[in-house]
Design a protein around this nucleic acid. Structure first.
Lengths: 229, 229
DNA sequence: CCGGTCAATGACCACTCGGTCATCCTAATC
DNA sequence: GATTAGGATGACCGAGTGGTCATTGACCGG
């Protein structure tokens, strides 16, 4: 969760875990609050209370350090998705969706900095990554949603005439907006979503599910009803 | 559209329109491609082929220049919203929504740089603006959508039990995602949305409307159907 | 032809950035 | 105690930043 022995130079990986964590945490904090370009190695050094030379012996470049942090964040997100999938395997689609969002809120509560890095990464084009890597990241969550939808179609819970990939993209982006607005002050704080309490979040989830399940249109079952009489 | 005599120092406003445009365009280009913090006054100077001293006589600070550019972008967006509202005044809600998105695509085609600045502004927290100003910007489009929805409810076109503000926020964010993915390579280029042609875009709009109008759930009129037989 | 006005100019300032490297320090080995 | 190996250190580098200001020169009324 906090230590990641995969990244950095041999020297960094052979460091005492406590020191390794100190450095890594400082890096996470810095990138989370400033993004990639505006993050400063000098700041990391200051916060971690090590010398600049040491940091560059642990990570050859700023880019390397960022890669390490991102890798860790992505692993964390993957685990969270996997966990939700397992926990909700036998639920109905919309219950699953509900749990997915709720777990998202919890993830943000538990790893606010990692969440910030992850969302910053997939939303702002200012990352140093190539297009390929970015597409791959988006596919991670989009494909997850698509799988959930396909499952539900297989079980006859939702309409089978849906364009799965497209709908998955839309529903997923809707969910991501919800999560982002939960920790972003200027998006929907007037609507009680920003750092909302449990009850407030429940109302949002309900509205969200209502929208994607039944839609906004006035139910038109009157026609079929008429047809059978 | 291109000239905005509102911003900058008296000197700037009294410049020959052609020169004023040259400077302003260079600034728009710079901010659009690099965001606020990473934009460089030196770059603007180079592109506009004026001296650095001059630029700082036209705009006292980088921040002032950015404010001017943003103000212009926001005005442009407001006009576009107003235009759509007028053009679609007598249409049904979902037709209006369709037109709104289509107009959004066109706006991006016609003002790619302004669109970039606008979306960059409302999505990335790295702007120099205060929270108040950001909230205000979000409310601009959210309130627009809320009005459309209230209209439609008044006409009985969509369900009256909707939580208007919340639904407006969700639908609006969905639309914004669609627009953003249209010019952002790494979001959904695998799904044909990125710079998609007319037919491709039509399919996306259709999927979008299907989702928000009828939802994903299997129509449950079967019960009523059974009840009447 | 003069004096005055004012926009244009780019050298310059203090600062920050990512990154380097000669030097120092410590701890183990002989 | 002497030698050595290797991690820690921070002064230093070149580049780039936003911003300033003394100087220049074009223009204009008298």
């Amino acid at each position: 969760m906090s230590t990641s022995p995969i990244t950095g130079t041999r020297l960094f990986r052979s460091l005492a875990p406590e020191k390794r964590d100190k450095v890594f945490r400082a890096a996470v904090r810095e990138f989370a609050s400033k993004g990639y370009r505006n993050a400063s190695m000098n700041s990391v050094v200051k916060v971690a209370r090590i010398s600049k030379g040491s940091l560059f012996q642990y990570f050859r470049t700023k880019r390397d350090l960022f890669d390490g942090v991102v890798e860790m964040a992505v692993i964390e997100v993957k685990n969270y998705l996997k966990q939700v999938r397992e926990d909700t395997n036998n639920m109905s689609f919309f219950d699953r969706l509900s749990r997915l969002i709720r777990a998202g809120f919890e993830f943000i509560d538990n790893h606010p900095l990692l969440a910030r890095i992850y969302f910053h990464l997939i939303q702002s084009g200012e990352t140093p990554f190539g297009v390929e890597r970015m597409l791959q990241l988006h596919k991670l969550s989009d494909e997850f949603m698509a799988d959930l939808i396909r499952d539900a179609i297989g079980r006859g819970e939702i309409r089978s005439d849906l364009d799965v990939e497209r709908v998955a993209f839309l529903v997923n982006s809707l969910m991501e907006t919800l999560l982002r607005a939960y920790y972003t002050e200027f998006m929907a704080s007037g609507l009680g979503l920003y750092r909302g309490d449990g009850a407030e979040l429940d109302r949002w989830i309900e509205t969200f599910l209502e929208l994607v399940s039944r839609g906004m249109e006035v139910p038109r079952d009157a026609e079929k009803f008429r047809a059978c009489t």
